[in-house]
């Protein structure tokens, strides 16, 4: 059976200008308890890959360059 892709708004946004993942930083990826962040192979910066956000904010708080913003997922907002 084919698998459908249901779109949903990603709560975590990462400012590629500020992100220093390409310099070896993996802070947000390490600290996400849900493990939903990855390096985007297209630009070497971090991005959200899975819509499984607990909006707990370590990614935003621990980011050394303040590149991460988290919105409350729309269903709860």
């Amino acid at each position: 059976m084919p698998i459908a892709n249901n779109p949903s708004e990603m709560p975590v946004k990462i400012d590629a200008e500020k992100c220093i993942a390409d310099k070896g930083c993996t802070v947000c990826i390490d600290v996400c308890p849900l493990d939903v962040l990855r390096i985007n192979p297209a630009n070497g910066k971090a991005h959200m890959r899975y819509d499984e956000c607990w909006y707990c904010l370590p990614c935003a708080i621990d980011c050394p360059t303040k590149a991460v913003t988290v919105a409350i997922p729309y269903l709860l907002r």
Partner: peptide
């Protein structure tokens, strides 16, 4: 070695 990098961002990653 990384703390002595020419790239400041690399140094800050290493410092952390």
């Amino acid at each position: 070695r990384r703390l002595a990098s020419f790239d400041a961002a690399e140094r800050s990653v290493a410092a952390r």
